[in-house]
């Protein structure tokens, strides 16, 4: 279970979030809706430990990750996975190397098995040796999801992951990703500005309005 409390964020002296609270039950998929500049991505990045805030605490499965605006655990040690808007696949690595990046400590054999099973999960078998630029946008986003799931994170953050895809592919991928996350029962937070997408994807939806979170 994730709980974020009393989060306050400001950009260049204008405050975007004030006393923001959020809790997500284990295995739930939560969608965070908001207009651009509403601070939804910043909230997500604070949870990941990538961005600072004036105030705010994060507790994940009983462990304090951030306390009163100070990160007590570094991003690389939080066991949180993230899927970025533009996928952020490493262009110089193959699909196999990308997906296995987070599980490099495993033996070669277990890595191969794990990557194969993840590729099966995202319905893209046999593309291990391809480079990201040889894949379509939708395929890249699936690979990026597989990479984030490889080391079984306690929480998965998705920062507008579907926004650079065209509509027809997007609807399909939203459905697919939801079923994958449900199958793996990964606690997840999706950030989006698209209400329809949020409804199709999440179990619960919250909207940022007037610097606070309102649960629908």
């Amino acid at each position: 279970m994730l709980s974020v409390s009393n989060l306050s964020i400001s950009f260049d002296e204008s405050q975007v979030l004030e006393g923001f609270n959020l809790s997500v039950e284990s295995g739930d998929i939560f969608a965070l809706l908001g207009d651009s500049g509403s601070g939804k991505s910043s909230a997500l990045r604070f949870i990941a430990g990538l961005e600072n805030a004036m105030n705010g605490s994060v507790v994940l499965d009983g462990a304090d990750l951030s306390l009163n605006g100070v990160h007590s655990v570094k991003p690389e040690l939080r066991e949180i996975g993230m899927v970025f808007q533009d996928y952020a696949l490493f262009p110089h690595m193959t699909v196999f190397q990308n997906i296995s990046f987070g599980i490099d400590h495993l033996s070669k054999k277990s890595k191969t098995e794990k990557v194969a099973s993840l590729l099966e999960l995202i319905s893209l078998k046999g593309i291990e040796k391809k480079y990201p630029h040889q894949l379509s946008g939708g395929e890249q986003q699936r690979v990026s999801l597989a990479r984030a799931l490889a080391n079984s994170p306690k929480l998965l953050l998705l920062d507008e992951p579907f926004s650079s895809l065209d509509k027809s592919h997007r609807d399909e991928l939203v459905k697919d990703v939801r079923s994958i996350l449900k199958k793996q029962s990964v606690t997840s937070i999706l950030v989006t500005h698209d209400e329809a997408e949020a409804k199709a994807f999440a179990d619960k939806i919250g909207k940022i309005e007037k610097k606070q979170l309102f649960i629908n």
């Binding site: 690389e76 996975g81 993230m82 533009d86 490493f90």
Partner: peptide, 28 residues
């Protein structure tokens, strides 16, 4: 892109590994 490094961090890579496996190859 800063996201490259952030992606590395979120996958558990420490600073030296990010430097060696992501930043340097990209700047090669």
């Amino acid at each position: 892109k800063i996201q490259m490094i952030e992606a590395g961090k979120m996958l558990g890579a420490k600073p030296l590994r990010v430097f060696w496996r992501i930043s340097v190859p990209l700047a090669r």
